[in-house]
Design a protein around this nucleic acid. Structure first.
Lengths: 129, 129, 129, 129
DNA sequence: GTGGTCTAGACCACG
DNA sequence: GTGGTCTAGACCACT
């Protein structure tokens, strides 16, 4: 039994849920480089969704260099935990830049912006850091 | 000729472009409370897009209480600049919360998160605040 | 009627045929930046293959930045002819390097390698250059 | 311990890795005509892969007349180094032809193609020829 | 058993 | 009408 799950009620697309899920497992250390992923069919059966949807997620992950899949041999993790973390760092930068630009145009000030970041962080986490 | 434009090459949906565009004009002060908006048909003709798309944007803006449309008499701005600014504040909160949640899962720390917000703000603006 | 075709007897995969085909049309100048591509469904019908296969090709082309697709608005060419040509140049370099390495290991000499390139070129083309 | 290895992470199929590996050993002179190859079972054990995979490689090599297998007596090299070198020549021709065709379609000229071959060769080798 | 491709047919949001 | 996602079920080559 793997740790991968999907929520059919979530509006996020299933294959994206799978992608985010597997990335999170690598980031958390539950999946390490060279670990084997569940097979397309077995995971589909376990989650009760169509194998094509798993396939799509795996294909996308391979395209990003996060896993490798080999016919007849299954799929395994390729990316190191840290490289993935660095990638998220970059994503954070971009997202923040887009948000900052939009808020600037709306007359929001730096003070309010940074405070929003702090508060959002504290509000999100179950436990204060 | 109005200041409203759309970019057909932009991946963002046309009606969302229109909504953001009009909101921005209010926030910048180019459109004030009680100003008249171009008619659905004239704007559609001017922009070369389907009137349905304009209609959808106007309907959505009316639903949010930002404009008001009166059959036969056109549409006009209803919201004050400041009320719109407050709305953006709420949007900022939501966006920050979503971002914070995602980054938490990736092992990013509060420090890095808040610093990213500050740096993004500074990097974005042409002139330092 | 478009210029895009597929050969069901070819062992190359259909979606790759489509990708190569569209790239070639851009390279030949038959498709220019901002030209509209046939819709997924209409092309599928015309070629007698499944829309999903067209979709896969379009998705891949979009991923490479060669086209853009927008729900409800269709797909259009994004890449300039020259940028695509430069990309092929890079591909040529890599392919040649891989081939050269392999042939070196097999005891083939530079003379024979370069002559093979010349002869292959002349043999391939219908008309001598 | 033999010089034969496989890379489980390589996307190339294992039996092809084995075939290329053995061919390379013959081309380099490490394996000569009449040299004995490791047995299917011992090599499988040494490499930690399925004996079927070794068998498939040996079978393919025998089909090409490069080795010969005798039940109960193992397998040995049949091909001379030079005959294998001729085979690579043929492979070079095919690969060049495919590459030339593709590049022609992309608007690459003969000049550029041949120069790419020369440069690739020079760049590949540690020592100039 | 494995991944990968393809078909057929459905549904959704959008213009 | 458009692109995009998902399901169901089939086939292929490879281990």
């Amino acid at each position: 039994m793997s740790l991968i799950t999907v929520d059919l009620r979530d509006r996020k697309q299933l294959y994206e849920q799978l992608i985010d899920n597997i990335k999170a497992l690598i980031l958390s250390g539950d999946l390490k480089k060279d670990d084997k992923l569940p097979s397309v069919r077995s995971l589909a059966k376990e989650l009760g969704i169509n194998p094509n949807t798993i396939q799509k997620a795996y294909t996308e992950l391979e395209r990003c260099g996060i896993i490798v899949s080999m016919p007849g041999r299954g799929s395994m993790v390729l990316a190191e935990r840290d490289s993935l973390r660095d990638e998220m760092s970059g994503k954070l930068e971009n997202a923040m830049a887009a948000l900052a630009r939009e808020m600037r145009e709306s007359g929001i000030g730096k003070e309010e912006f940074v405070r929003a970041a702090e508060e959002a962080w504290d509000r999100t986490g179950g436990k204060p850091e």
